[in-house]
């Protein structure tokens, strides 16, 4: 809940007069997250609403500068999903080693760190002016193909 609140609080604080329009979406997302934590359903919708609220804030901004906090918001939303799922998993009465908790904690932290790096890289690459040569174009096309490939693999599994 803290990660979710943190992801949206900054956007709402910076939204100014449009915060009133964004707040209901954020509140509904938080409510869905609470429902997901209690009943185990609705986590996807909560994350989706969180992301949508942040995008709405971006669209409502008058100036069109790249928001440098976007990677942080993305990672907080991902952490929110991972920690909520972990919380639900731990409700089963399963006796296990403490090392299992440490392993999962480390894996979650590593995923968050890697996610932050990739997102920051995406934002940084966007600052590079377009039309700077064939290499960048090929790299962009390869990234798109990779993203599509991942989608196909996920769908296949």
């Amino acid at each position: 809940m803290a990660a979710y609140g943190g992801a949206l609080a900054d956007a709402l604080a910076r939204a100014g007069s449009t915060a009133g329009y964004l707040a209901p979406g954020a509140a509904l997302g938080a409510l869905l997250l609470a429902v997901a934590l209690v009943y185990g359903r609705g986590l996807g919708a909560a994350l989706f609403l969180g992301g949508a609220t942040y995008l709405a804030f971006l669209v409502s901004e008058e100036h069109h500068r790249v928001d440098p906090t976007a990677p942080l918001v993305a990672v907080l939303l991902l952490l929110c999903g991972e920690l909520a799922a972990w919380s639900l998993d731990e409700r089963w009465r399963i006796e296990g080693d403490a090392a299992l908790l440490w392993r999962r904690g480390a894996a979650t932290a590593a995923l968050a760190l890697a996610g932050l790096t990739v997102a920051a890289l995406v934002v940084a690459l966007s600052a590079v002016p377009s039309g700077r040569g064939l290499a960048l174009t090929v790299a962009g096309a390869a990234a798109a193909v990779c993203a599509a490939g991942v989608g196909v693999m996920v769908a296949g599994r």
Binding site: Y54, L58, V59, G81, V123
Partner: peptide, 29 residues
Amino acid sequence: AYAAVAASGLVAGLALGRVEPVALAAPFL
């Protein structure tokens, strides 16, 4: 849910012509 968020982020990035939705989708990808 992660796939939906990631796909939505990529589509929104293309539609809005902004990088933030793509950055939002990257950790989920």
